[in-house]
Amino acid sequence: MPKIEAGSVREHRAQRLAQLIDATEAILEEGGAETLTAGAVAARAGIARNSIYRYVDSVEDLLELVVTREFPAWIDAVERAMAAEGTPEGQAAAYVRANLEQAARGTHGWRASLSRRSLSPTARERVRNLHTSLHEALDRVVRALGKPQPELTVAVLQAVVDACIRRIDQGDELATVSEFAAGATRRLLAPDES
């Protein structure tokens, strides 16, 4: 039995997997996906090459774990922001604002680029499913507003979020982008005046 470096086997496995993800991320940031090999990850993490396969099935699994690393915290931040609002309009605005704040504080652009270029179609589908789970919260809010064509409203709001995230990824200031997105959200969700 290998020596564990934590209070339990479960904690040891979690720590070791985190080390592998950290090593993978560092290699990707330094040299790109072309430089990512099991041997490079093992050397960077300080473990034997074949030990990687106790934690993941392939190097591609490590790529996917790097791409999705920020999702749990991102989703949690969006859900907390929405829960703090008392009206559907406020929740929709919180959804937009929280997504932009998460994009501004993280490494979204780099991870999104990595996802598009380096993940397998199956892994990209799993990433899309994570995005879909986030979009479902917006869908519930828009439906609560009773807007006609809720699917189209959600799609347009999400397009605003996506476009604004791209602007943040390109270096635009969060405050400027967020103000624009908030205005677009208010106009889109304003009561019909017909």
Score class of each variant (00 low, 15 high):
residue 1 M to Y: 12
residue 1 M to N: 10
residue 3 K to I: 14
residue 3 K to H: 13
residue 4 I to M: 11
residue 7 G to C: 10
residue 8 S to G: 15
residue 10 R to I: 12
residue 10 R to G: 13
residue 11 E to F: 13
residue 11 E to M: 13
residue 14 A to I: 15
residue 15 Q to P: 03
residue 17 L to M: 10
residue 17 L to S: 05
residue 20 L to H: 06
residue 22 D to V: 04
residue 23 A to Y: 02
residue 24 T to M: 01
residue 24 T to A: 05
residue 25 E to P: 07
residue 26 A to P: 02
residue 30 E to M: 01
residue 30 E to W: 09
residue 31 G to K: 12
residue 34 E to A: 12
residue 40 A to Y: 07
residue 40 A to M: 03
residue 40 A to N: 05
residue 43 A to M: 11
residue 43 A to F: 12
residue 44 R to M: 04
residue 51 S to D: 14
residue 52 I to Y: 03
residue 54 R to F: 07
residue 58 S to K: 04
residue 59 V to E: 01
residue 59 V to Y: 00
residue 59 V to W: 00
residue 61 D to G: 06
residue 62 L to Q: 10
residue 63 L to M: 09
residue 65 L to K: 11
residue 65 L to A: 06
residue 66 V to C: 06
residue 69 R to F: 02
residue 70 E to C: 06
residue 71 F to M: 09
residue 71 F to C: 10
residue 75 I to Y: 12
residue 79 E to S: 12
residue 81 A to F: 01
residue 83 A to V: 15
residue 83 A to W: 14
residue 85 E to H: 05
residue 86 G to D: 11
residue 87 T to S: 15
residue 87 T to K: 05
residue 90 G to F: 14
residue 91 Q to S: 08
residue 92 A to R: 05
residue 92 A to T: 04
residue 96 V to E: 10
residue 97 R to A: 07
residue 97 R to M: 00
residue 98 A to P: 09
residue 101 E to Y: 02
residue 102 Q to R: 11
residue 102 Q to F: 06
residue 106 G to V: 05
residue 106 G to E: 01
residue 107 T to P: 03
residue 108 H to Q: 07
residue 111 R to L: 01
residue 111 R to C: 05
residue 112 A to T: 02
residue 113 S to D: 07
residue 115 S to A: 14
residue 115 S to F: 03
residue 117 R to M: 06
residue 118 S to N: 04
residue 119 L to W: 00
residue 119 L to E: 02
residue 120 S to H: 00
residue 120 S to L: 09
residue 121 P to K: 02
residue 121 P to R: 03
residue 122 T to N: 09
residue 123 A to T: 00
residue 126 R to L: 07
residue 126 R to F: 09
residue 129 N to R: 13
residue 129 N to S: 15
residue 130 L to E: 05
residue 131 H to E: 06
residue 131 H to P: 06
residue 132 T to Y: 08
residue 134 L to H: 13
residue 135 H to Q: 14
residue 136 E to A: 15
residue 139 D to T: 15
residue 140 R to D: 06
residue 141 V to W: 11
residue 142 V to T: 14
residue 142 V to H: 03
residue 143 R to F: 04
residue 144 A to V: 02
residue 150 P to S: 12
residue 150 P to Y: 11
residue 151 E to C: 08
residue 152 L to P: 07
residue 155 A to N: 10
residue 155 A to R: 10
residue 157 L to A: 15
residue 162 D to Y: 10
residue 163 A to F: 14
residue 164 C to M: 10
residue 167 R to D: 04
residue 170 Q to H: 15
residue 172 D to K: 00
residue 172 D to Y: 09
residue 180 F to Q: 06
residue 180 F to N: 09
residue 180 F to I: 10
residue 183 G to F: 08
residue 184 A to D: 03
residue 186 R to Q: 15
residue 187 R to K: 10
residue 189 L to Q: 05
residue 189 L to R: 07
residue 190 A to T: 02
residue 190 A to C: 13
residue 192 D to R: 12
residue 194 S to F: 10
residue 194 S to Y: 06
